[in-house]
Simulated assay, not measured.
Amino acid sequence: MTSRTPLTLAATVSACALALGVTAPAMAAPAADGDDQAMVSVFHGVPGLTVDVYANGDKLLGDFKPGTVTDPQALDAGTYDIQVFEAGQSPDGTPAIEKEVKVPAGADATIAAHLSAAGKPQLTAFVNDVSATDAGQARLTVRHVAAAPAVDVRAGGQPVFKGLENPKQDTTTVDAGTVSTDVVLAGTDTVAIGPADLNLKEGTDNIVYAWGSAADKNLKLATQTLSGTESTPNAAHADGSGAAVTTNPSDHWLTGR
């Protein structure tokens, strides 16, 4: 069961950085230079499946483990046929997931391999908002990429996101500092993930992925932190210790066409 739907990544100009301290594999990206490049990260949110990722027939990632987000890498602007195979499987076979992605010059984006609400593997591309925040502020984004129904995100027991569905996101800016949050099934007090604390540093863009499967009881959080104007990335594997709180819907998430 593969999907091949073109995605267009709306341009959000800026290089970005991840700062979470645990090394993840870097993409072996095609060379890019000048104004013809885009910055692209990949998040793996399909539980129990280590994968190899190919773009236009070339391997970008090998032995890519669930819950991991890559370093941002420069890619030449253009159209990429993204294929995800079980690790070690011949690229001549049928991929577990496949989608065509158009990457315009200047884009900053994350491609997420994850489960749909019904539990089927799919790819979703999200634009990363790396624009500057005001002094003392941090940007928060939550992306629902789990095989689970709609959720509410709470801070201090009060919902600040309501009815977030797969594969959508919400985002806003908040005061920098530590936020204690949890994720519950929408309209209930049934905790799906957490509670967890997220340390939001001034000037950072904090992206939290709720991923996994509710039916398999392996829901987790993974966190991607972008420091807007910096360009030396790290990557992270998060196993449930991050969370995020936002209040306003974002106009930066990407839909298939």
Rank of each mutant, 00 (worst) to 15 (best):
Thr2Arg: 05
Ala11Asn: 05
Ala15Leu: 12
Ala17Pro: 11
Ala17Tyr: 03
Ala19Met: 11
Thr23Tyr: 08
Ala29Cys: 07
Ala31Asn: 11
Gln37Leu: 10
Met39Trp: 14
Gly45Thr: 03
Gly48Asn: 15
Thr50Leu: 06
Ala55His: 06
Ala55Gly: 15
Leu61Ile: 06
Phe64Val: 01
Lys65His: 12
Pro72Gln: 13
Pro72Ile: 02
Pro72Trp: 10
Ala74Trp: 06
Ala77Met: 08
Thr79Phe: 04
Tyr80Gln: 04
Tyr80Ile: 05
Ile82Asp: 01
Ile82Arg: 02
Thr94Pro: 04
Ala96Gly: 13
Ala107Ser: 15
Ala107Arg: 01
Asp108Trp: 02
Asp108Gln: 08
Ala109Arg: 01
Ile111Asn: 01
Gly119Lys: 00
Lys120Thr: 15
Asp129Gly: 06
Thr141Pro: 10
Arg143Cys: 03
Val145Ala: 12
Ala155Cys: 07
Val160Arg: 06
Phe161Tyr: 12
Lys162His: 08
Leu164Gln: 09
Lys168Val: 01
Lys168Asp: 11
Gln169His: 10
Asp175Met: 04
Val179His: 12
Leu185Trp: 07
Ala186Met: 06
Ala186Gln: 14
Asp189Val: 00
Thr190Pro: 11
Glu202Tyr: 03
Asn206His: 09
Ala215Trp: 01
Asn218Trp: 05
Leu219Thr: 00
Leu221Glu: 01
Gln224Ile: 00
Pro233Asn: 10
Pro233Ala: 13
His237Trp: 11
Asp239Pro: 06
Gly240Ser: 10
Ala244Val: 14
Arg257Phe: 11
